[in-house]
Design a binder for these strands. Structure first.
Lengths: 117, 117
DNA sequence: CTCCTTCATCGACGATCATCTATATGGCGG
DNA sequence: CCGCCATATAGATGATCGTCGATGAAGGAG
């Protein structure tokens, strides 16, 4: 917090209102979910499957992680609305939600980040 | 890691090679930098400035953070290649690197995430 | 030269996160 | 019904992160 006015002006104050704390927090949360290499790999696997449902065992095979850890990452991605789960018997299948990926893509557009969510 | 083959097939194995660990780590790092509401706000302020240089005091005014904390966030954004710094006397001015924002935007394209970096 | 101002760095602290092992849940085969 | 298998949840632990106060470095004013 600036206590005194500067002796000389360092810049002209910016016009317009800041991004609200709620909007910034929403973006923070979305990026936080993506900020893990294993979750990035999960997304990559699902996107390469072209919308097809992928079994959990596929991730545990490819990710060199313990099974509960894979379950943890899938839960985060699902809670973020990026994935859908479908259970068949004891198996669980995941697929990407295309509209969520589209929304993500539009949110990181410079023109979008220059405003609010 | 799957120890035995499943009794019944849960899914047909996916074709194609996984995203490499280095590529996944690069995306992880980029998203990690964005995964903080105050850094999101900094980016928003800079993008609203439309490429104009913005003084550090602008961020300390708007972000309700101590000055060292603002400095810390600006350093992370700069190290990620998202910001440029320009010093004039004792003041420091930051601006967004448009090509970095463009790259970010293209990286989160679903078609791009379906491959490698 | 000396003081003040701006910004960066350092060291510490509390919170959050990714990971594991152990355990629970729930379906399927015998 | 009993035991196995796939997945989810719980609890613990070590690492990383965001924040602060204190301090350092460097430029401008008098």
């Amino acid at each position: 917090m600036r206590k005194r006015l500067p002796v000389i002006a360092c810049c002209t104050p910016l016009a317009g209102s800041s991004l609200s704390d709620e909007d910034a927090a929403e973006l923070e949360q979305l990026f936080k979910v993506l900020a893990d290499r294993n979750r990035v790999k999960i997304l990559n696997i699902l996107l390469r499957a072209r919308g097809q449902a992928v079994c959990v065992c596929e991730f545990t095979d490819q990710l060199d992680l313990a099974q509960p850890t894979v379950s943890y990452h899938l839960k985060l991605l699902r809670e973020a609305g990026l994935l859908d789960r479908e259970k068949r018997g004891t198996f669980a299948y995941f697929r990407v939600r295309p509209e969520a990926m589209e929304r993500l893509h539009s949110l990181v557009e410079p023109a979008a980040l220059a405003k609010a969510v």
